[in-house]
Amino acid sequence: MDSIVKIDRRGALECMIWAGTGVLWGLSGGVPKSLGLLGEAMAAESGFTFLQISDSHIGFNKPANPDALGTLRQAVAKVKALDRKPGFMIHTGDITHLSKTTEFDTAGALIGETGVPVHYVPGEHDFLDGNQGKAYLDRYGSGTKGAGWYSFDDHGVHFIGLVNVLDLRAGGLGRLGQEQIAWLADDLSSKASSTPIVVFAHIPLWTVYADWGWGTDDSAAALSLLKRFGSVTVLNGHIHQIVQKVEGNITFHTARSTAFPQPAPGTAPSPGPMTVPAEQLRSMLGITSIEVRMGDKPLAVIDSTLAS
């Protein structure tokens, strides 16, 4: 498994060379950059930044982080303290741990304190109500299709929120389903190939590590629809750590959780919550800022931890 990590790192380094200074990445083994520093560096490029937060798991209280609400509160404070207000946030799922009403209420109220609009997609933990995700969809499903997928445009970028956590099949990975893929084809049909695309969903839309279910069975069908576009950025959560790669026109990136870390692929018996010394926890949790750049440049994806 070590080899997979090395390949990813090598691939990421190649991407940095390829893109020159166009891509600013805080690598998982690299130095986390603060959003404050980022703000100055990016201001000349465009006026538009959005944030990604993920896997807040409100309700989780196990040893890996007995206070998932407290660390989300820290992330929210970080957003509130930003000099440059982001255009909006995306939350890539697992808002709650058990889909309980109180968990949704608590998470929604706290995230709402940022005063920043939020576009959500669900994680599998948000669909645990035994009622096909009604608890989630009653809150965040307005104006969406199917199990909660949707798209919108902002600053010339086409954003697509997908759902790959419903009706999963035995032995499989994440799943989009034919209905959603057909919707995606239709959604993209009117878009010029020069339109920058941002796709976000909970489970990675490429196979990070199949043995732990870190991938989406039918993502290839969705990604093939994105091949004609010049700039595609895919943002996911679920694995509670940063993994990224570039494949052709598509940049893939996963965000840290605000709740608890998970082990690197294959480095532990299971992908379950990883307990680290308390003083290290916040360096393994964080949020992501994405700078939209004009023209064909890739979006700049910069991660920062709760410790920075």
Binding site: E124, H125, F127, L168, R169, A170, G171, G172, W212, G213
Partner: peptide, 12 residues
């Protein structure tokens, strides 16, 4: 009877 974990479907 085959079964799995509905949220971690690689578990069978």
């Amino acid at each position: 009877v085959d079964y799995f974990c509905a949220i971690h479907p690689h578990m069978t």
